[in-house]
Each structure stands twice: as structure tokens, then as C-alpha cells.
Computed example of a mutant assay.
Amino acid sequence: MSNTKVPKILITGATGQVGSKTIDFLLSNTDIEIVAAVRSPEKAAPFTEKGIATVILDFDDESTHLPALKGIDRILIVTGYTVDMLRQSKAILDSAKRAGVQHVVHLGACGRDDTTVAHWAWHQLIERYIEWAGFSYTHLRPETFMQNILSYGGKKAIENGIIHAYVEGARLSWVDVEDVAQVAALALSHPEIHAGKIYRLGYDAVTFNEMAALMTSIVGKPFRYEPLSPDVFLQNMINAGAEMAYMGCVYDHWKRYAAGTIPGADDTFDNFPEITGKQPVKLADFIKKHKAEFDY
């Protein structure tokens, strides 16, 4: 019998889009052990039913950090959409260092290295902290999630063929969450290959008018884009009681998209086949995959 230790991988954000899909891609890998981080026993149940180990981890409760990280070799860090992500990331990374975690895969945000979009830059500061702390690392910088055109902020993004966004005629770079999760799973499974890499992930660049034309062609019903002022977004966030330090930054970046003042807003990349051996999802593929959800 082999005494070789199987690496344990902790997935934070396990109930979210990227975390849950990353787990799906890791399930067939018998050379690692998956551990899902959840905030309550109730949220552990779906993982337990699949035979996936769970630990209680609350980014805001530092007493949960070291117990959750015990025996963990690699970690996927996915934080939420508040300015607290800075404090939370530092705290969990400090605990991970004490616990002996070796490899960190961090889900960051869009942007070139010299970005001045605030919440994108925050993620880059976390990247630098990971490096300074001496971890082996893989940094993921996904562009705009295609899933945002299904729903955004808990609401359906397209109603009766009308697409709303806050960016005027800007061209954005897009990526399917499943493609992000594939890269995350590979980086966690094979840190010897992916250590020290920054992967920018965006594989199709279109405007919302071009998106509407694609949807019209694929779904077979008319779609059109009606841009909204970023001020509408800001008021919606205020009305919803959102954390405004973060959402104020998002408001500012919508304004900059609309004004065309974000360098590289439509950057796309050719790294996906090299990383995964597969072709990335393009927007037309995504619309076809979700045709029933876009139909009305």
C-alpha cells in the first residue's frame, strides 16, 4: 500500500459560480482530495451528498481560518464584492501561510498590469501580497463573465429581447465561467505546470449591439440593446443597500467603459488551447448553449 499523501485542495466560494464549476472539473481527478469551504452546516449538505469533504470557513471570522486550513496543500481564493475583500484576503493568506499551504490560485479581475480601475487594482494588490508571502501561485484575471447576460445582480439581464447595460457602445472582452473554472482546476491539479503564471482570460470581444444581432440570428427572435446611464446602476445599488465603497468603484468603471477610457477593455487572448488543450467558448457558442433561456 502506498503511503503517498494525496494533496488536499480547499475551494473557497464553493457555492458560487466559479467555485462550484471548479469542483465539477476536479471531481474526476483521483490524485487530489477536494475540500469545499462553506459558511454553515446547511450549505455543506449538497457537497456531503456527493461525497465531498467540507469545512466551515467565514472570511469575516478569523477563528475559522486555521481549523479550515489544517492539512490543506492548495487553495482557490474567491472573495466577494465588497471592499472587505482586501482585509479578508490578507487574513486568509496569513493563516494559509501558518497552516503550510503551498499553492494559491487567486480569482482576480480584468485589467492590464497598469490598470487604474479601482476594484481591479485591489485584486492586483492581493496578487502582489500572495507573491510577497512566498506562495507558489497562479493568478486568474477573467474578463467579463458571459453569465452576466443571463442574470446580473440577482436579476434577469434581458427582458423580452431588450438588453440593458451601462457602457454605451463599448466593446467588452468576454469569457464563459466554465472556461475560467477549467483553468482554475488545472492550476490546482498541476501547480508544477502553472506556478508563477498570470492568466488573463477573455476570448471574444463584442459590443452589446453586436451581441443583440447574434442573439437575433441564433434565437430567431428580435433582440435590441438599450443602453442605460451608469447613474441608473448607482441608484439601484443605493436602493438595494449594497456596500458602496465597492459599488462606487463599479459605477466609476461603467462610466469609463462608456467614455472609452479603459485601455484594453476589449483585450482577448490565445492562451486557452495551450492551458487546456481545448478551444474557448465564444459568445455565439454561449448563446446557442443557453438558447432556451434567452427565448421569450
Results as ranks from 00 to 15, higher is better:
Asp61Gly: 00
Ala284His: 09
Leu69Glu: 07
Gly80Phe: 12
Asn3His: 06
Leu26Arg: 12
Glu178Cys: 07
Asp60Phe: 15
Gly277Pro: 10
Ile149Ser: 08
Ala37Asn: 10
Met1Ser: 13
Asp295Ile: 08
Trp122Pro: 14
Lys156Pro: 11
Lys156Ala: 15
Val250Tyr: 03
Tyr129Asp: 15
Glu49Asn: 14
Ala133Pro: 00
Ile198Lys: 11
Ala170Met: 06
Met215Cys: 09
Ser63Trp: 00
Ala284Met: 02
Phe269Asn: 02
Val35Thr: 12
Asp266Trp: 00
Tyr199Arg: 01
Asn239Ala: 13
Lys291Thr: 07
Glu243Tyr: 12
Leu26Glu: 11
Thr82Gly: 09
Asp94Met: 10
Pro280Phe: 04
Ala165Tyr: 03
Gly264Ala: 08
Lys221Pro: 00
Phe272Gln: 04
Lys5Arg: 12
Phe233Glu: 02
Ala213Trp: 01
Ile193Tyr: 09
Met146Phe: 13
Ala258Glu: 10
Leu93Asp: 03
Trp174Gln: 07
Pro41Trp: 10
Ile162Lys: 13
Ser28Asn: 14
Ile23Arg: 05
Gly277Cys: 01
Gly108Glu: 06
Glu168Leu: 10
Leu186Asp: 10
Glu226Met: 05
Cys249Gly: 15
Cys110Thr: 03
Gly248Pro: 14
Asn271His: 08
Leu76Ala: 04
Leu107Arg: 04
Val250Thr: 14
Thr30Ser: 13
Lys8Asp: 01
Pro142Asn: 01
Gly16Thr: 01
Trp122Glu: 14
